[in-house]
């Protein structure tokens, strides 16, 4: 969340509640919006690290509100984050570990393990299908996230097939 707040502040200074609203508006149901408390805690840490600074803005009839803006160091941190490639998906897979170690346990037969796992993945895929059906057609951010999850699952299934061909 640190970096998404920095990115929003790079656009314009804002107070905590505005940041929460902006996250909700951009990501919709794709990422559950953080609660306001988490946002203030994060802003406090960013301030302590010198990445943002706050100014008190007076308001009539109400307590002052803190408006946050990005510092030069904050800008650098944001640029560094955007510029570096993001880690790829995990390759260490718990199921794969089970599969390789199965003969040593003396109980599980690999074919049965793979078959059970396939059905489980397909069950997850069905959940994702239902979720996609329930998601607003206009909510591209959420739909893309669901599609990403589907493609990962498809890759897991393809890999399972490879394991079945080669290990059984």
């Amino acid at each position: 969340m640190r970096l998404s707040l920095l990115a929003l502040l790079a656009k314009e200074p804002a107070h905590g509640y505005e940041l929460k609203q902006a996250l909700e508006q951009i990501f919709g149901s794709a990422y559950p919006p953080p609660n306001i408390g988490q946002i203030y805690v994060t802003l406090g840490r960013l301030e302590k690290d010198g990445l943002v600074r706050a100014v008190d803005v007076e308001q009539s009839n109400r307590p002052n509100k803190k408006v946050y803006y990005l510092t030069a160091a904050g800008r650098d941190a944001l640029d560094a984050w955007v510029d570096e490639p993001t880690e790829g998906p995990r390759v260490r897979d718990e199921f794969f570990m089970k599969l390789v170690l199965a003969p040593m346990t003396g109980i599980a037969d690999r074919m049965a393990l793979i078959n059970r796992q396939r059905r489980h993945y397909l069950g997850l895929m069905r959940d994702l299908n239902e979720l996609a059906d329930r998601t607003d057609r206009e909510d591209y951010v959420a739909l893309l996230l669901i599609e990403g999850a589907m493609l990962h699952l498809q890759a897991d299934l393809d890999w399972l097939e490879r394991c079945q061909e080669d290990l059984s």
């Binding site: 149901s29 559950p32 059905r119 997850l124 959940d127 979720l131 909510d139 959420a142 739909l143 999850a149």
Partner: peptide, 22 residues
């Protein structure tokens, strides 16, 4: 293998934000 697709333990609770959990 020949069988029915089982229900997953965790049903999606309704938003894409739960996909990761799913």
């Amino acid at each position: 293998d020949d069988g029915f697709i089982g229900a997953t333990r965790r049903r999606p609770r309704g938003t894409a934000g739960d996909v990761v959990e799913l």
